Simulated scan of single mutants.
Amino acid sequence: MKKFLICGLGSIGQRHVRMIQTVTKGKAEIAAYRSRKLDIVISDKLEATFNQKPEEHYGLTVFDSMETALAWKPDAVFVTNPISMHVATATAAAESGAHVFIEKPLDCTDVGVANLIRAVSKKGVACMVGYQQRYHPGYLRIKQLLDEGALGSLISADLHFGEWLPGMHPYEDYRESHAARKDQGGGVILCLSHEIDMAYWLFGKPRSVYAQGGHLSDLELDVEDTAEIFLSCDNAGREFPVHVHLDFLQVPPRRYIHIVGDKGSLVFDYRANRLEVNLLATRVPEVTLYDTFQRNDMFLQEVADFISSGDKGKKPPIPLEEGVDVLNICLAAKRSLESGKKEVIV
């Protein structure tokens, strides 16, 4: 791939520009399709420089419409606009013959998903969904332990992520952000869906979903700010519970995963980059600190893998069908939150 189109130059769009420039060693041609055209440059640490055009800062060509952008014939399109626009944008990109990278989640409804699947299949393009947490070495070690059966038969799992929404992007009014707006696909279930994807990746597609929560705080938004999600997962033919907690409220942020099996347990604190594994056979804690880990490492690797998949004609590590599965789990949780009933996953 040589030509890249970025659809949306918010914080994640700008991060992907930097990742592409790094992975391609500055040899890529990068353009952007912009609609809001805010004059703000956002760094890896989410520090903002106002009254500066990102296209000038990064040296990008800018298009005013999707039609003219696709007429430029990009090799790949990065979909980094509001969640509610993901599938429509990705479908147009795939139909043009471009490889497609879609930021998480896939969308906020399943409308148009079948058309996207057909377009990707017909054109034979790579399509990857951006659940970069899978690249963290701590989660990779957890995946390895589970695949090896180190914890034995799984008994329970708890995934927890909470962060105060106004502090997530301090350079903008949270009330205007997509995370706070139903019309743009906001709410914790979709915006914090990394934990739902992690449960799916580690434990497979659940049999059913039940959720409680809603808009429980004084935050000014029209979406849920808290969700307690209960997934009924399968372990060697036995059902076991997985709990996912999500909120827009915690200061400081808190993020961890705790898994219990009949041969041991583990706890991974994402904020502290600390994994502790306790096996009954040894009774000696195995503690790993990921001191040298940098958050950008995950984004760099996922972009490198996406580019490699497109260039080599291989399925990407986080393919479209897995993004569809995670979206369906999220939508089932949304429905359960509204109805108060358990949703069966087909």
Rank of each mutant, 00 (worst) to 15 (best):
L106R: 06
H243T: 15
H57E: 13
G264V: 00
A180F: 00
K27I: 07
V242E: 05
V125D: 10
D291N: 15
P166V: 04
E220V: 15
E302A: 07
S177A: 11
H86K: 05
N235A: 15
A333Y: 03
P285W: 09
M168W: 12
V120G: 03
L192K: 08
G13V: 01
S153A: 15
M66Q: 05
L5E: 00
F50V: 06
G323D: 09
G149W: 04
R118M: 08
L140T: 12
D297C: 04
K2P: 07
E56R: 15
D247Q: 00
P74A: 02
L146K: 04
H215W: 02
P206F: 01
E56L: 12
L289C: 09
L275M: 02
Q294G: 08
D110W: 10
Y171V: 13
A119S: 13
L145I: 03
R254N: 10
M128Q: 14
Q184W: 07
S265R: 10
P319N: 06
E29M: 09
L221W: 12
V251D: 13
S121A: 15
S193T: 04
S96C: 14
D305R: 01
L246C: 13
V244E: 03
D44K: 01
M168D: 14
V113S: 10
F4E: 03
L9H: 02
G204V: 06
L331H: 05
G313H: 09
F63W: 04
L106F: 07
D158V: 05
R207M: 07
A211G: 13
R15C: 06
W201Q: 06
Y210L: 09
Y256G: 00
F50Q: 14
T282R: 08
V209Y: 05
